[in-house]
Each structure stands twice: as structure tokens, then as C-alpha cells.
Nucleic acid binder design. Structure first.
Lengths: 322, 322
DNA sequence: GTGAAAGCGCTAACAC
DNA sequence: GTGTTAGCGCTTTCAC
């Protein structure tokens, strides 16, 4: 390459990085040769020398969950705009895999974006000291070097409860999310507050997928609620399916709500009442927190607002069961 | 590190890689020091030296599509078992982004897994010469250095048609997938054969998502089919939603089929008749083809069988519309 | 069985 | 403005 252009390797580097001025003549020769050979600097050598890979690692509990896929679709293009890559790891909801994936990624990348981590706070703090930079999505971590982007689940659930209460609902069943999910805790905190205001809330363990919702729907019904509040939309879809099988009509016999607002939610008759979360925005913001690392104390968490989306799956109760 | 253990860096390397025998005494000192410092070899340096990153790049058109998320969940653990990483890129169905992503990944990784590529065959061949190794999923490429893993969509669609024909269906509407999708071509090839055997098939452009299916369902109905054959399950779910809105009963008024067998398909009443594709197996096989690169001529494509899954969304036609 | 040293490809510091 | 050189951290000769 340098030989073809008859210049030193340093000159090639200067032309390609634009770090120092090079005479027009040489610069052209270098560019011609580079184009001719389809030459690109070896990334490994660049990383070794600079210690920076311009890559951010993204760790998610489950890529098949549309929520995280969307977060990724927010983060990746935002990063690409500045010439950064994203490297994704799926942990299958396993806290141990999560920790290992983050640690290992940390050796390659300049920063890690940890989405809805299931690991303990202790290990999370450990990670903070090991990784070059860390931003956590959907989990509050009090640590000077950990940035956080938080969706306001508490506010969303509060709005959902207010909506149901205003329709006249008094008895709800809440289908809990995965264990150790911070976002589940936020939702439940809001439910406790709502319960203090006269709403009767039964909670049952469930999960985060449609099969989970399908499985527990009948049990939920056993508690005679007027509304079933699912951890997220995907779970709610499973609930709706099961209710249909059971001959229970929504919202006539029981109301159902979700959370997140995935594409199917608007379509599935009668339309799922949910809380819209700007998922791509979450991804973009998380990337930005990582990119502007050091531009200020990261102790403040970025909060992302949500919006109630009322559709056909909620209605006043009390028409009674058939 | 080497200083702490009072040995040369070469000895450290030999202990850690296990390349050459080292006396028990030294080996223990090295291991202790490594554990104490939580030492790990710098990956960039290893890559620079060896030219191998033990990383495979996976390029998919859309991560939000459960299909590709599942393929990934097949490939990643299989690769991890051998100490390999996967690096994922989402191209948003854009052939240009796809080419760039694969090319750029190729500089980092030891091989690229290109899933359902939308780019032209010409560019695909170009890629083959640029990349260290290439396996293509769901696309037939005749090139000596390109391995292929193909799902037998043709066979699946043939079975689906046979099933519908045996129920007595004579007029179908097929909702086409994304342009340039090889798998769509395979399905259509099977449909043409079926058409030659007396099945009347109307094809209309659609896409690969639930909103796509929702959008075109009414148009499909306009062709007065007794069955609607969707490109995939996700599309079919959109169709089912729209039909419900329109007061059209499945399978009484019209039968509906999907393809792929995603988790929701089994749940959604009345249960979606579809073709089950072993998605994780596809991912695993693709990884294996990449890993055993050079272990033989890659000109033969690996074919993955599929299986018809009959559920409630298909039934004999002819009860007529209400 | 062990250490010293070369060199992977690149960029920054240092001559000229 | 340009070339020469050192050195990023590792593994692999090559000597001993």
C-alpha cells in the first residue's frame, strides 16, 4: 500500500486519518492507491494502539422480546451516525450469563449498555469498576460512574390505575414480570399506592412472554377481578388468547391492559389499552449517555416519559359475567 | 503480571494458552498472579497477532422479527460453546446497509452469517471474495466459497397447499413477503406448481409484519378466496386481527395460514395453521457450516426440513359468508 | 523448560 | 511536509 503510493506508512496514516496536513500531490497518490487496493486500516491494530474500539456492547435479557429489539433499533443507528458499532449479547434472562457477557464485552468495547439487568445490585456495582463505561437501562444504580436511563414505569402504571379506577374498576389482578426486574418493582410500587386509595389488587407471578400470560390467565380469573393488568403487552396478548378460548369476552366480562405498546397491540381486536413507551428513544438516549460519558456527573438518571394509550380492551365493569 | 509472578511474558503466555508445557511450580505462580490481578490477555493484541478474532458476524434484515431473533438464539450458544462470540447487525431490510454491514464486519470477524439477504446476487458474490468466510441463510448462492443453509420453504408451502386442497379449497390469496426475499420466491414457486394442479392462486404484495397483514387483509378478501395464505405467522396475525374487525370468522368464512410457527401462533384463537421451521436449528447449523469451513466443498447447501402444523385456522370452505 | 527478542499493523513522537 | 522509529500487548521463534 505504502509501496504502491511510494510514500511512508506514516504518510498513509496521516492522509487516511486526516490528523496532519499532507501535500495535495502525496495525498492524491495515497488515496488512489487505497482505492485501488480497497485498503482499510486493520481495526485490531488501531484498537491495540489507541485502546479504543469505537464499539459499544449492548446486553439484553431477551432479543426475541420486541421491547429490546426496538431499544436496539434506537441505539444502533444513533451510534452508527458517529461511526460507532454496537455489539449485542442475549443473556436469556440469566443473571450469571448477564454478568459474564458484560465483563467479557468490556474487554472489547469502550462502553456497555446494560438493558433491564437481572443481576444483583452488588454485582452491578462490581461491573461498574471493571468496565470502561457503563450505562444501565431500566434499573436505578447509585454509583458515580454508572449512568442510567429509566422509563417512568411508576408514572405509567399510576395512569393505568387511574384510568381503570375512573371506569369504575375496584378489583384488579396484576401479572408480575420476571423476578429481579426493576421495572416490575416500579409497577408494583405504583400498584401499592393505588391499593392505598381503595383499589383492590391481587398479584400473581407470571413472566414476560405470551405463553406466560396464556398460562396464568385462568388463575387470574379465579380471583374474580374486573380487570387484568399484565406486566407487558406480550403477556397481555397471551391473556387475551386464553380468555377467548375460555369464552370470556373482553372488555365485557373483564378488562385487560398491557404495557410498552408493541405493534400488535394496536391491531389485536378490540385493541389493547396499554402504556406507550418510546423504545427507540430509550436506546438513543442510552447511547448518548455513553457517548457523553464524563461530560458531567452521571449520578442523575435520565427519565423517559410514557403515555397512556386507551383502546378497546378496557371498559366499565359490572355488566357481569354471562 | 509477569513481574508479579517473576516469570517472562512468554511463560505467562504458555501457561494461559497451554501451548507448551511449563513446570508445575511456575505454572502455579502464573495462575495465582493472574487470578490475583484478574488478568486477561488483551483481545486486540491477540487478534492483531493471530489474525483471528474467534468472532462471527451475523447480519439480519430485522431483529424485531421473531424469526431472526430465534436464529440468533440458535447460533450464539452454539458458538459460545467453542469460545466464539457473535456480533449482530440489523439492516432494516435495506440491501445497501446489508452490504456495508457485512463488509465492515468482515474486517473484524472470522466469518459472516448472512441471514435472508436482500442484496443482489452480484453483490453477494462480491462479498464472497471480500470476506474471510461466508455462510448464507435462506438464499441459494452458487459460489465455491459460500456455504448455504436453506429452509425447505418449497416443501413447506407444498404441504400447506396439499392440506388446503384436501380440505376442499380451490381459490387462495397469497400475501407476498418482502421484495428480493429468496424464501418468498420459494413459496411462490410451490404455489405455481399447486396452481398447475387446479388451485386458483391470486398473489398480492404485502410484506413481513403484522401491520402489513392488517393493511392488506381487506384487499385479499376482495378476491373472494376460501383461504388466505400469509407470507409468515407475523403477517397472518395481522390478517386475523383485521378479519375480526371486519366481522369475518376464521375458519368459518375463510381459512388463514402462516409460516414459521412463532410462539403466538399456537395461542391465538383458533390457533394458526402454519409450517413449523426449526429456527434455532437453522442458526446452529449455519454456525457449524462456518466453523467447519474448509472441511470440504461448501458447494452443497444444507437443507432444513419443515413440518406442517395444522391448527384451528383452517377448515373446509363452502359454509359460505354470512 | 525458560527467557530474550522479533514482529503482527498501526499511529504518535521525533528528526530533518 | 515527510520519513524514520518506537511501541501498543501479545505469541512464537530462537537460543540456551
Amino acid at each position: 500500500m505504502a509501496r504502491l503510493a511510494q510514500v511512508s506508512t506514516a504518510t498513509v496514516s496521516r492522509v487516511l486519518t486526516g490528523a496532519k496536513p499532507v501535500s495535495a500531490d502525496l495525498a492524491q497518490r495515497v488515496r488512489d492507491a487505497a482505492a485501488h487496493l480497497d485498503y482499510r486500516p486493520n481495526p485490531a491494530a488501531q484498537v491495540l494502539l489507541s485502546g479504543r474500539s469505537h464499539t459499544v456492547g449492548v446486553v439484553v435479557p431477551d432479543l426475541a422480546n420486541p421491547y429490546f429489539a426496538e431499544v436496539l433499533k434506537g441505539a444502533t443507528p444513533a451510534a452508527a451516525e458517529r461511526g460507532w458499532r454496537t455489539l449485542v449479547a442475549d443473556t436469556d434472562e440469566d443473571p450469571e450469563v448477564e454478568y459474564r457477557a458484560a465483563t467479557e464485552l468490556g474487554r472489547w468495547v469502550d462502553g456497555v449498555m446494560l438493558c433491564s439487568p437481572r443481576m444483583s445490585t452488588l454485582r452491578l456495582r462490581e461491573l461498574a469498576t471493571k468496565l470502561p463505561a457503563l450505562v444501565v437501562v431500566n434499573r436505578l444504580v447509585r454509583h458515580p460512574s454508572v449512568a442510567a436511563v429509566l422509563v417512568d414505569y411508576h408514572q405509567g402504571m399510576t395512569q393505568l390505575c387511574a384510568h381503570l379506577a375512573s371506569l369504575g374498576h375496584r378489583r384488579l389482578v396484576y401479572l408480575q414480570g420476571p423476578p429481579h426486574a426493576w421495572s416490575d418493582g416500579q409497577r408494583r410500587r405504583a400498584l401499592r399506592t393505588a391499593a392505598g386509595r381503595g383499589l383492590d389488587v391481587v398479584q400473581i407471578p407470571c413472566g414476560s412472554t405470551a405463553p406466560d400470560g396464556h398460562r396464568v390467565a385462568e388463575e387470574a380469573l379465579g380471583h374474580k377481578p374486573t380487570a387484568i393488568v399484565a406486566f407487558n403487552d406480550y403477556v397481555a396478548l397471551g391473556v387475551l388468547s386464553r380468555l377467548t378460548e375460555l369464552g370470556v369476552t373482553v372488555p365485557h366480562d373483564v378488562s385487560v391492559t398491557g404495557f410498552d405498546d408493541i405493534p400488535l397491540s394496536a391491531l389485536t381486536p378490540p385493541g389493547l389499552t396499554t402504556v406507550a413507551v418510546p423504545k427507540r428513544t430509550v436506546g438513543r438516549l442510552a447511547w448518548e449517555r455513553l457517548a457523553t460519558e464524563g461530560a458531567g456527573p452521571s449520578t442523575t438518571a435520565t427519565s423517559v416519559p410514557v403515555e397512556l394509550a386507551v383502546r378497546g380492551s378496557t371498559a366499565p365493569p359490572g355488566q357481569g359475567r354471562r
